[in-house]
C-alpha cells in the first residue's frame, strides 16, 4: 500500500523529472529495510514534489507548453481546441485571488449569521399602493384578513359604530414605511404571526375618515376616552406639532387602555394573572415589531409609525 502511495506521489511530479528518475526512485524505495526507511522515503517524496512545482519554474513552462500544444484530431474527427496558455500565473495574482475569495466568503457568512433570529437574510418586500387607495382602507383590509384566520376570537361581538367622522382640518398623509397591523398572541399561546412586507404609501387625497367606537364591555369611561381615531392620527401624522399637557395626558390614558385591552384576551373587562403573564413576551414582540430596520434601536420615527398602526387596529372589536 505504501509503495502504491509512493508511486502515486511520483506520478504527480513534473513529466520531465518523472520520465528520467521515476524508475530509479521506485527502485530505491524497494531497497529500504523496514517501515521507517520507507516512510522516510515517502516524506522525502512530498518535499521533492513541493520543490519541483514551487521552486523549479522550468517545470511550469514545460507543462504549460505541452498542454498548449495542438492536439491531433481524434479518429472520429472531433476537433480540439486550446485550453491553456503558456503563461504561468503570477504568485501575487494567485494570492490576491485567494484573499478576495476568503474575504467575500467571510462577509457572506457574517451577513447570514446576523440576518435575523432565524439566521436568514431578510429583505423587505416593498409594495407600492395606487394613489387612490387610502391607508385606512389598506389597514382595514389587512385586519379583516388577519381576523378571518384567528380561530380564537369570539363570535358575536358587538360591532362598533362605523358612522363616518369628518375631520375639521385636512391632514396630510406623508409617504411612510408602515409595518403590518399589530397582531397579538392568541389566547392559546401561539406566537403571533409576522409578515415581512412593508407598505410604501403614496400621498393620497384625504378621504372621509371612519372611526369605530369601542364596544360596550369596557364601559362608558372607555367609550369616552377611545374617541375618534382621527384625533390621534392627526398627532401621529404631524410630528412638528407640539402636544399640550392635556393632549399628552389624554394620549397616555388611551395608551393605557389600549394595553389593558391588549392583555384582556377574553374581553371580560379584567386582567387575570394568566393574562398579565403575557406582558413580558408581549413587550419583546412589540419591541421587535417596532424596530423596523432591526438594528436593535427604536427611533422616534419608528415609534411613531408603530403607534399609528397600533391605534388603527386597537379600535377594532
Amino acid at each position: 500500500m505504501l509503495r502504491l502511495f509512493y508511486r502515486c506521489l511520483l506520478r504527480l511530479h513534473p513529466s520531465r523529472f518523472r520520465q528520467r528518475y521515476q524508475a530509479e526512485m521506485l527502485w530505491i524505495f524497494d531497497q529500504q529495510d523496514g517501515a521507517v526507511g520507507r516512510v522516510a522515503v515517502v516524506g522525502d517524496g512530498f518535499v521533492s514534489l513541493a520543490r519541483q512545482w514551487l521552486f523549479r519554474p522550468v517545470n511550469w513552462q514545460d507543462t504549460l507548453a505541452a498542454a498548449a500544444a495542438p492536439v491531433a484530431r481524434s479518429v472520429e474527427g472531433i476537433p480540439s481546441f486550446y485550453t491553456f496558455e503558456a503563461v504561468r500565473p503570477r504568485s501575487a495574482t494567485v494570492l490576491n485571488g485567494m484573499l478576495w475569495s476568503a474575504g467575500v466568503f467571510w462577509v457572506l457568512a457574517v451577513a447570514i449569521s446576523h440576518g435575523g433570529p432565524s439566521g436568514t437574510i431578510r429583505l423587505p418586500r416593498v409594495e407600492i399602493l395606487p394613489d387612490n387607495v387610502s391607508p385606512e382602507v389598506v389597514i382595514a383590509q389587512m385586519e379583516a384578513q388577519a381576523r378571518s384566520t384567528d380561530s380564537q376570537r369570539k363570535t358575536g361581538r358587538k360591532q362598533l359604530d362605523t358612522s363616518p367622522v369628518v375631520t375639521d382640518e385636512t391632514s396630510t398623509v406623508t409617504p411612510i414605511l408602515r409595518p403590518d397591523p399589530f397582531r397579538l398572541p392568541s389566547p392559546s399561546g401561539q406566537a403571533a404571526t409576522r409578515t415581512e412586507s412593508l407598505t410604501l404609501v403614496r400621498p393620497a387625497v384625504p378621504q372621509t375618515k371612519t372611526a369605530r367606537r369601542p364596544s360596550a364591555p369596557l364601559g362608558k369611561e372607555s367609550s369616552e376616552i377611545l374617541g375618534p381615531s382621527a384625533w390621534m392620527e392627526s398627532l401621529m401624522l404631524d410630528p412638528s406639532r407640539p402636544l399640550s399637557e392635556e393632549q399628552r395626558i389624554e394620549f397616555a390614558k388611551r395608551r393605557a387602555l389600549l394595553l389593558i385591552r391588549v392583555l384582556d384576551s377574553d374581553d371580560d373587562g379584567a386582567i387575570s394573572r394568566e393574562e398579565s403573564g403575557r406582558a413580558t413576551e408581549l413587550y419583546d414582540d412589540l419591541f421587535d415589531r417596532t424596530d423596523l430596520n432591526h438594528d436593535g434601536v427604536v427611533t422616534r420615527e419608528e415609534l411613531r409609525i408603530a403607534l399609528q398602526a397600533i391605534l388603527s387596529s386597537a379600535l377594532d372589536p
Binding site: 526512485m25 522516510a40 516524506g43 517524496g45 518535499v47 521533492s48
Partner: peptide, 26 residues
C-alpha cells in the same frame, strides 16, 4: 549510480547526513 551516491554520502557523514531520492535526483 543514484542509490550508491546515497550510501556513500551516509558513510562519509558518519550517518549524520542522509539524502532522500527526491533530493538526490533533484
Amino acid at each position: 549510480h543514484g542509490y550508491a551516491i546515497m550510501q556513500e554520502v551516509r558513510r562519509q557523514s558518519e550517518n549524520k547526513y542522509r539524502l532522500g531520492p527526491g533530493t538526490l535526483y533533484d
